[in-house]
Measured scan of single mutants.
Amino acid sequence: RNRTTFSTFQLEELEKVFQKTHYPDVYAREQLALRTDLTEARVQVWFQNRRAKWRK
């Protein structure tokens, strides 16, 4: 699988949710996936990576 390149819009949407919660539930991830045209799995992995970055 190739690396996912996120658009500016997608990143803004993802970051917006991350500001509210670092652990969105499955429903929130599904909604975000639909809004950003990503799969729920991509959204989940983005949050994992974003939390790792945030901890540093």
Score class of each variant (00 low, 15 high):
Arg1Asn: 15
Lys53Arg: 08
Gln19Phe: 09
Arg3Asn: 15
Trp46Arg: 03
Thr8Leu: 08
Arg55Asp: 13
Glu30Ile: 04
Leu11Pro: 00
Arg1Lys: 14
Asn49Leu: 12
Arg50Pro: 01
Gln31Thr: 09
Gln48Asp: 07
Asn2Asp: 15
Val17Thr: 12
His22Glu: 05
Phe9Lys: 13
Thr5Met: 15
Phe47Ala: 00
Val26Gly: 13
Ser7Arg: 05
Glu12Cys: 10
Asn49Ala: 12
Glu15Asn: 08
Lys53Phe: 09
Leu34Ala: 14
Thr4Phe: 14
Arg3Gln: 14
Val45Asp: 13
Leu11Cys: 07
Phe6Asn: 03
Thr21Cys: 11
Ser7Val: 04
Tyr27Ala: 15
Glu30Cys: 15
Leu11Val: 11
Asn2His: 10
Arg42Ala: 15
Lys20Cys: 07
Gln19Trp: 04
Arg42Gln: 09
Glu40Thr: 11
Phe18Lys: 00
Thr4Tyr: 13
Thr4Ser: 14
Gln48Pro: 02
Phe9Thr: 12
Lys16Gly: 07
Gln44Val: 07
Thr39Gly: 04
Arg1Asp: 15
Phe6Glu: 14
Trp46Thr: 03
Lys56Pro: 06
Tyr27Lys: 14
Arg50Cys: 02
Lys16Asp: 04
Asn2Phe: 12
Lys20Ile: 13
Trp54Arg: 07
Ala41Leu: 08
Leu34Ser: 11
Gln48Val: 11
Gln31Arg: 08
Thr36Met: 05
Ala52Val: 13
Leu11Gly: 05
Arg29Ile: 03
Arg55Cys: 08
Val45Gly: 12
Leu34Asp: 11
Tyr27Arg: 12
Arg50Ala: 11
Arg29Ala: 04
Thr39Met: 03
Phe47Gln: 00
Ala41Phe: 12
His22Phe: 06
Tyr23Thr: 06
Thr8Glu: 11
Glu30Gly: 09
Thr21Lys: 03
Pro24Gln: 01
Trp46Lys: 01
Glu13Asn: 04
Thr4Pro: 15
Arg55Thr: 10
Leu14Gly: 03
Arg1Ile: 14
Pro24Ser: 01
Arg3Leu: 13
Ser7Ala: 05
Thr39Ile: 02
His22Trp: 04
Val43Trp: 01
Asn2Gln: 12
Ala33Phe: 07
Thr36Ala: 08
Ala33Tyr: 02
Phe47Cys: 00
Leu11Ser: 09
Leu11Phe: 02
Gln10Cys: 01
Asn49Thr: 07
Glu15Lys: 04
Asn49Gln: 13
Leu34Trp: 10
Trp46Phe: 04
Gln44Leu: 12
Lys56Ser: 14
Thr8Ile: 08
Ala41Arg: 08
